[in-house]
Each structure stands twice: as C-alpha cells, then as structure tokens.
Amino acid sequence: MTTDTLKSAAPAREGLSLRVLMQNSGIGLALLALIIFFSVTTEHFLTPNNITNILTQITINLVLAVGMTFVILIGGIDLSVGSVMAFAAVVAGKAITMPGFGDAEAIALAIFAATMTGVLCGLFNGIASAFWSLPSFIITLGMLNIARGGALQISGAQTIYSFPFAFEEFGSAMVYGVPVVFLVALLFVLIAWFILNFTVFGRLLYGIGNNEEAVRLAGHPVFWYKVAAFTICGLTAGVAAVVYMARLNISSPIAGIGFELNAIAAVIIGGTSLSGGRGSVIGTLLGAIIIGVLANGLILYGLSDFMRQMITGVVIIVAVILDYYRARFASK
C-alpha cells in the first residue's frame, strides 16, 4: 500500500519511517477491523459475489469523492455534486435517446454531454467562488439548486429510459469479478494520486490549502488553480453520471440527493482536513470503501435501517476524532 503519501501534508519523498506508517495506517486498520468483524459475524460478507456488490455500490461515491478531494484540499467544499450528477445524467439521457444516431455515436455523445455538463458546472463554481473570494459553501449551495432545477426542467421530472444495449453492458461488465465501472473509478484514483503527488499543479493545490497568500506571492496563478480544482470536481460529477446511467440504464432527475454528503464523508474519513492542505486521495479511496463496507455489512448483519443510519453517523464522528489524535501524534 502506498502509505508513504497517505496523509502527509505534502509528498515527502524520503522513504518510509515508522512514524509515517503509524500516522497513516489508522484508517487502514479501521477498515481491516470492519472487514474482520463482518467476515466473522455474517455468513455472506466475504464471498466473491458480495465483494463484487460492494465494489459496484461504492463506485459512484468514489468517483465523486475523488473530485471532492481536490476541492477540500484547497480549503473549499462542493455541495453541488449530487445535483450536478443528476443534471449531467439528464442532459446525457436526452442526448442518448435522441433519434437518428447509431448506438456507438449515441453513447459517445452521452458521455461527452455528461462530462461537459459536469465540467461547466464545476467551472462556474470555481470562477464564482475564486473571482469574488466567496465561500464555496454558498456558491455550490446555489449550484445545488440550479443543477437540480435544471435536471427537473430538462426532463420534465420524468425518468428517461431505454438506452442502447451496449451501454448497459458496459455498466454490468466484469473483469475477474471486478466491475468495469469500479476499475474506471480506480483509474481516476490513480490519476488523482499522480497529479496530487507528482505534479507542480498538485503540489500547489496543497500549498493553496495551507497558505494561499504564500503561493500567490511566489508568483503562481492561484485563481486558475482554484478554478481547476472545482472543474475537476465537476468533471467527476459528470463521470459519476455516466456510471449511474450505465449501471441503472435510466436517468432520473431526482438521482443523487445527498450524494455530496457521502462524498464529503469519504474524503474526511480518509483523513483529509476540512480546512485544506492536508490529506490524500488514497485516504479517500479507503474512506469510500469504509462507507460502502459499512452500508453493505450492516444489512448483512441484519440491523434495521434506522440503526444502520445511526451507526454510519457514529463512524464518521469517530473517524474525525481519530484523525485529531493522529494529527497530534504527528505534530509531536
């Protein structure tokens, strides 16, 4: 596992030390404990089918959380991703069901439409919050409503259905029991990991999250870096929309309600600081898996819906408290 970059304020390429390992393995240990617990207490948890299920179930949240990591790293937040996903899905749904296209063209058009919708929404979020230095909380809250309204308006509040068969196949395709859509999400994690750890852009995003002014005074175009972070987040919302459509073969304008909170939870459980500048996308991956394992495992365990909701809440709080102690340990 790439624990050396997990959680460090910025990539420290000086090899593994025990301290670094201790700082970073908390979230991994928590996940391991959950997996062991559910494997022992439930019959079906550790079966190939169920693992496939979990991977499918976390895919959308993981894609959204990868984009969210960029925004949270610069000290922002994006509350609009759930709505933007629905908006992108509806726009793409309209595109894919347009008459006069072959399957391949229709699918390509839909993927293009979904990602462009996401990118444009993210671009707007980024420009509006960076140009006027407004809290992204409020700008993206506005976008949450704009995108949801847009999705309902365009679809007339109707579920869009009957997509090409090939699209559906992609949504349910497997490689050795691993859903292809999950592999797509994993590819995004890897790309994000590379960007954040090995590029100037990634380095400066961490810098902006820690001390925006210092980065600006060092001559870097902070404005565009911030816009880029939000645009990436929008892009992942568009990609999540494609995954949603491929998996369920419909576009629903009421899809994704509350998804932004799940994505934020995955990022925070993964150890990224809400105030920015500290965290990693590998942590986000583990955070998304924890949320998925919990949702799945607690059903298998036979817990009621309401208890399940309570326990998920408790886990989020415990994760943040653990992170507090990890940060203190790190500073000593």
Binding site: T47, N53, I60, R247, S252, I299, L300
Partner: peptide, 21 residues
C-alpha cells in the same frame, strides 16, 4: 424489509445486498 427512499440507485444497492444475505 428495508427502505430505499423511493430511489433507483439506492434500491439497486440495498437490494443487491439483501440478495447476498
């Protein structure tokens, strides 16, 4: 008997887990 809040994606996730169980 479980809720999926009227929603397609959640029903998909919740039901596939129920099917495993």
């Amino acid at each position: 008997s479980r809720t999926a809040h009227w929603e397609t994606e959640e029903a998909n996730s919740v039901f596939s887990t129920m099917l495993t169980a």
